[in-house]
Design a protein around this nucleic acid. Structure first.
Lengths: 239, 239
DNA sequence: CGACCGTTTGATAGTGCTCAATTCAAGTGG
DNA sequence: CCACTTGAATTGAGCACTATCAAACGGTCG
């Protein structure tokens, strides 16, 4: 077995605690290796899949950072999420056999391709995988509830604070610093995700910086007081 | 077989085109009847399940109308959706084995209880059911993308127009009028869902009425021009 | 019939948006 | 190597939209 082949296997992947294999026994984990038939590289700025594309597989991010966004005929545009290593993309395509959003790489990336029909077959044989697939989809639904809370009831500062806390929390789970991060997206993309204009995002960053909560130099952000951020999120303006 | 027993069966349910049995063959449909072990009545104002409750089943609405909402420690509150006959509730509970939102009946209701472990077992035997469960979850994810678009990029009029169109479209699929409807929720609940205050919802209704787009008498709404509503949604204010 | 909850409507204030100018970082080509 | 171009980020001023506070109205159900 070549080193190359070893690297493909889920059982040896350093993301196995976060990604598809999460919670599977060693025995089941071996079967999962049949699932990932292919890896695909996506250059920064290009799409892994786009609205209207035929749905055929789910994708696990190995390296890189993505945004997903929906667009309407009317030209309305909305970033629906940012995805990082170990996270699963493509669930939107199951219901109508076509993707309904775009998945765009914000930096050079690599994904594991998991053909959907194989997932269905394999999860009939491996109950733990079946459960896990359900969990992944349920987690996405619960995540959306959080986003609705954010978009529906928070003000600009609260939204940005929640956004930063969410990002560092996910980065920390991947072994990165919980106080320092490099944003992979523009102010406009952050704004779209948070339901704000880019100027408002920029101003809010500046405000946080003035208050000594964060240091911001372009896309480099250092969080000086995550407690302050948490207080902003947990203490609604009307309280 | 008593008439009572006949009514329980999915195979005889008048919602089978919309609900869990959708797209299943007659043979598979018979197996589905094992799934629904119990029906449960919920009085108006009380909860089918609440945040923190142990997750054990998914629920299909037979009659009635629900809202789902999430609440934070900080006292923030957000309606995440309104559900009507034939729709599935409880998917949020899968990931953490506990429900993360409340499902409250907005009128006297009745649901079919589908124990989750049976769903998992049965969908291993019935591939069509497995696919269908995945589709239901995927549909929920795609629906959330639409809500994000609404909350993230629309103004009050656009949100309310989109809300009304969505409601009548779902009601029409259930055989109701596509121009007349009775709102089962308060202005405050509509506002929470749309990220607006109740006064803004009320004012926007009045504005639509002045413009001759709808007739509004309390919770009775008659849509006079769904084209006008569509135009409001499809033509962003900045266009 | 009366009390109460939900709704409507008005006046005012605040938050975030729009338009616009400037700064900054990183390439690109002479 | 530096002037130039380009895209992103910052900052300012004025305004539009929605929230807030407050009062009056109406329907529903004990």
């Amino acid at each position: 077995m070549t080193p190359q082949a070893i690297k493909v296997a889920c059982s040896n992947c350093n993301l196995r605690e976060l990604c598809m294999p999460m919670g599977l026994s060693d025995g089941d984990l071996g079967k999962l290796d049949e699932l990932v038939t292919l890896r695909r590289r996506i250059k920064r700025g290009s799409a892994l899949f786009s609205n209207g594309d035929k749905f055929s597989a789910l994708y696990a991010i190995r390296v890189g950072f993505f945004k997903t966004c929906v667009t309407t005929e009317g030209g309305r545009d909305q970033v629906t999420g940012f995805q990082m290593a170990g996270e699963i993309m493509g669930l939107d395509g199951i219901v109508g056999d076509r993707h309904t959003c775009d998945a765009v790489a914000l930096e050079d990336a690599e994904v594991c391709v998991m053909p959907y029909d194989r997932i269905e077959d394999l999860s009939r044989d491996v109950p733990a995988l079946q459960t896990h697939v359900h969990r992944i989809m349920s987690r996405e639904i619960v995540r959306h509830h959080g986003v609705m809370l954010l978009l529906g009831s928070m003000r600009a500062e609260e939204r940005l604070a929640a956004f930063l806390l969410n990002l560092v929390q996910r980065l920390q789970a991947r072994g990165f610093s919980s106080s320092e991060l490099v944003l992979r997206m523009t102010r406009e993309e952050i704004g779209s995700y948070l339901g704000l204009k880019l100027e408002t995002v920029s101003r809010t960053f500046s405000k946080f910086a003035e208050e000594g909560i964060v240091e911001v130099k372009q896309r480099h952000v250092r969080i000086l007081s995550s407690d302050a951020l948490r207080a902003i999120v947990n203490t609604p303006s009307w309280a």
